[in-house]
């Protein structure tokens, strides 16, 4: 060894776990890709264009706000992908871009960037467009329609600030089965008709780009959980909270309220539980806190679905959970080692 070796002085500990932020984010992106892929398979070219538009607008916004170096941590890609998965596949592209800009600009950068945001940025974007474009966001497309890889859904290329064309005639013409233009949740709410569980599970029903196959969401979510990149206690308690609440109401009035199985498999609950509620930044850090947070989201989701004016409540439930996170953390500080049991 040479006499004048260069010596590094570093604080303890001198070693670190292999998973850093970039590794985690990359894997979340990886886990979202099959969901996006399924959406494209179901809805064709329009979905692909929408996905690219939304992700690009998120990245562009992140870059514009002077955070060029933060592009490399992949978190803006996650926001974009998740946002895309919550939108109807025929959503006009320009509205998708608006959603992306809002998600990053309003949901993330305004709070100070990665780690500082209170709410899940993707849901902020989605909430914004839901308020701004209430019709477009509830215009559904039949899955597996004919010619989906050669043509576009008529609404996709709507020019900015014009009203999207009416699609029900087009949908009726291209749909494989009779298409009612409603999601399983809407059917259940307004017509008391439950879609079969297998359709929901495999994802052959109408809905947002990424919310229709519970099975696929489950598989991708379990991958992340197995690699310890999401806290499995969150989805489990969200689903438990929703199932219990649904079962209770179903027991009280089986005619009006759907059962727990339908509740779990329909709408965005699976996607929300595994991919949105688990967003680390907006969820609590304490062991008891994550369970309370999950249960809260599950219960609120079902209550909104059954008693609110909306068919779907996951988004608002998660935003509410995000808002409650600091308080939950405060109230669930674990007992410090050696402290008297309270």
């Amino acid at each position: 060894m040479s006499a004048k070796a260069r010596i590094e002085l570093r604080p303890t500990p001198h070693i670190h776990a292999p998973q850093d932020v970039t590794v985690i984010m990359r894997n979340v992106v990886l886990a979202c890709l099959p969901l996006a892929g399924w959406a494209v398979w179901q809805y064709g070219l329009s979905a692909a264009l929408l996905g690219v538009t939304v992700v690009a607008s998120c990245l562009l916004t992140e870059w514009l706000f002077g955070r060029g170096e933060t592009l490399r941590d992949w978190s803006a890609v996650i926001t974009g992908l998740l946002l895309f998965l919550t939108l109807p596949p025929g959503f006009p592209l320009w509205m998708g871009a608006v959603a992306g800009v809002t998600a990053i600009g309003l949901g993330k950068t305004l709070f100070g960037g990665l780690g500082m945001n209170v709410f899940n940025p993707a849901l902020v974007g989605r909430a914004f467009v839901q308020a701004a474009f209430p019709v477009a966001i509830t215009t559904w497309t039949p899955p597996f329609f004919e010619g989906r890889f050669s043509g576009l859904i008529p609404t996709t290329l709507t020019l900015p600030f014009t009203i999207p064309p009416e699609t029900s005639r087009w949908a009726g013409a291209v749909a494989v089965d009779a298409f009612t233009g409603a999601t399983p949740l809407a059917l259940a709410k307004f017509q008391q008709s439950l879609s079969p569980a297998t359709d929901l599970f495999l994802g052959t029903t109408a809905g947002s780009a990424g919310e229709s196959s519970a099975l696929l969401v489950l598989v991708c979510g379990l991958y992340l959980a197995a690699r310890k990149m999401l806290d499995w206690r969150i989805p489990v308690s969200v689903l438990a909270g929703a199932a219990l609440t649904a079962a209770l109401f179903h027991l009280l009035d089986p005619e009006r309220h759907p059962d727990a199985g339908f509740t779990l498999l329909s709408g965005g609950l699976m996607l929300g539980a595994w991919f949105m509620a688990t967003d680390m930044v907006g969820s609590p850090v304490t062991p008891r806190g994550v369970v309370i947070y999950g249960l809260l989201i599950g219960v609120v989701t079902v209550v909104i679905r059954l008693f609110g004016g909306l068919t779907e409540g996951v988004m608002y439930a998660i935003l509410l959970g995000n808002a409650a996170t600091p308080l939950i953390d405060q109230l669930t500080q674990p007992r410090v080692f050696g402290e008297k049991r309270r």
Partner: peptide
């Protein structure tokens, strides 16, 4: 380094059960 992403891993690692 990155900003804290609030992942909670440190909370679940601390043997003194601190935050």
């Amino acid at each position: 380094t990155w900003p804290c992403i609030h992942c909670g891993r440190c909370v679940n690692a601390c043997p003194m059960r601190l935050n």
